[in-house]
């Protein structure tokens, strides 16, 4: 088991170490993920319901009221 895990580790380690173009691509991926999850998600895309209500019942009430209030002469 230990030997198998070690060989899997070596496989990935050597694979990453020998990358050339792959390093640039990984850099792009990491920068992209940072922008998406740290900048965009936190500062621009908060969970609309999650940031306003704690419980599921409160969220259901809010959406239910929205469904009723936005209609035309219900």
């Amino acid at each position: 088991m230990k030997k198998a895990l070690l060989s899997v580790f070596r496989f990935y380690y050597e694979g990453f170490r020998e990358m050339k173009l792959g390093k640039t691509l990984w850099l792009i991926i990491l920068v992209k993920l940072f922008i998406m999850f740290i900048v965009l998600k936190i500062f621009f895309f908060p969970d609309f319901l999650g940031s306003r209500f704690r419980s599921e019942d409160e969220k259901a009430d809010f959406v239910g009221n929205q469904l009723i209030e936005r209609t035309i002469n219900p």
Binding site: L40, F45, P46, D47, F48, L49, K59, A60
Partner: peptide, 15 residues
């Protein structure tokens, strides 16, 4: 990012 938009811009739909 589409999933971010569901949660922020389209929350009534998401729920």
């Amino acid at each position: 990012i589409l999933e971010f938009e569901f949660g922020t811009n389209w929350s009534n739909y998401s729920w």
